[in-house]
């Protein structure tokens, strides 16, 4: 792999807090190595700003290996940037070339208010989980794990849905700011398992109800969420969610 250095122009959203209006600021960074990650390029920029006596850019990040779901930049109009199946922290600078201009924004969604600069408040996702994204089992009274055989294909399908990292890219990339992909991944994860059976109907109804309360939009099946999901969560989960929701409704389950 050939490595190279590049100079870039960055247009970054700056906003002091949720109460004030934000705007784009333009910055130049030099000698960025193609081996750097996108966030390491931001580290360079932030060090530069600190030395100039300015405030560095605030953004969420933690594990930097694509699993915690903290990082959340909208890069050149795409959630997590140009590479498919990739979080911002795993995006590397070889995706760009010398002289490029890169536009970086926070997630844009009414249910995700900006906290500062590129950092947004995603606690709405926690509240959707609180509405029913669990199996009600207290610690300590579980049966032997192998007393509950689960067919491999079902287990695999459930796992695939459960790999959602809760980053919110689905919401950010949806023109309606819908949280259906996030929600459906959790509903599918638990509905596919026998352990999830007892609360299957109430769970889906309550979680959808909470999603609506949080102000997320409706799903119009454009598929942008699936296209930009860094974990490639399948839109088929939304199909499953809809069928779970209809079945629950037909059997008379209503939101509590």
């Amino acid at each position: 792999m050939e490595h190279y250095n590049m100079n870039l122009t960055l247009k970054v959203w700056r906003q002091q807090n949720a109460q004030v209006q934000g705007s784009f600021e333009t910055y130049q960074v030099k000698d960025i190595s193609s081996e750097m990650s996108f966030l390491e390029m931001f580290d360079v920029l932030n060090e530069q700003l600190i030395h100039e006596g300015k405030e560095p850019i605030t953004f969420d990040h933690d594990c930097r290996e694509g699993i915690c779901g903290a990082c959340s930049m909208h890069i050149n109009g795409k959630a997590h940037g140009p590479w498919s199946g990739t979080t911002t922290c795993q995006l590397h600078m070889r995706a760009f070339k010398d002289g490029d201009t890169i536009v970086v924004e926070p997630w844009r969604a009414g249910a995700f208010p900006v906290i500062k600069d590129l950092m947004v408040d995603r606690t709405a996702f926690d509240r959707i989980i609180q509405a029913g994204g669990y199996i009600s089992v207290n610690t300590g009274n579980a049966q032997d794990a192998n007393n509950l055989p689960i067919a491999k294909d079902k287990a695999d399908e459930s796992f695939a849905a459960a790999t959602c990292i809760g980053c919110g890219a689905c919401v950010a990339s949806c023109k309606n700011s819908s949280a259906m992909l996030f929600l459906s991944a959790k509903v599918a994860h638990l509905a596919l398992l026998p352990q999830g059976e007892a609360e299957r109907k109430t769970r889906v109804v309550n979680m959808v109800d909470q999603m609506d309360k949080e102000g997320f939009g409706s799903c119009t099946n454009t598929g942008a969420c699936e296209a930009e999901c860094p974990k490639e969560i399948s839109i088929m989960n939304i199909r499953r969610l809809n069928s779970e929701y209809i079945k629950a409704g037909l059997s008379g389950s209503v939101a509590k």
Binding site: Y134, I135, V137, A142, Q143, A145, P149, I150, A151, K152, A155, D156, S158, F159, A162, H189, L190, L193, Q195, G196
Partner: peptide, 8 residues
Amino acid sequence: AQGVPFAR
């Protein structure tokens, strides 16, 4: 019991 999807 919580629904952790271990490999099977």
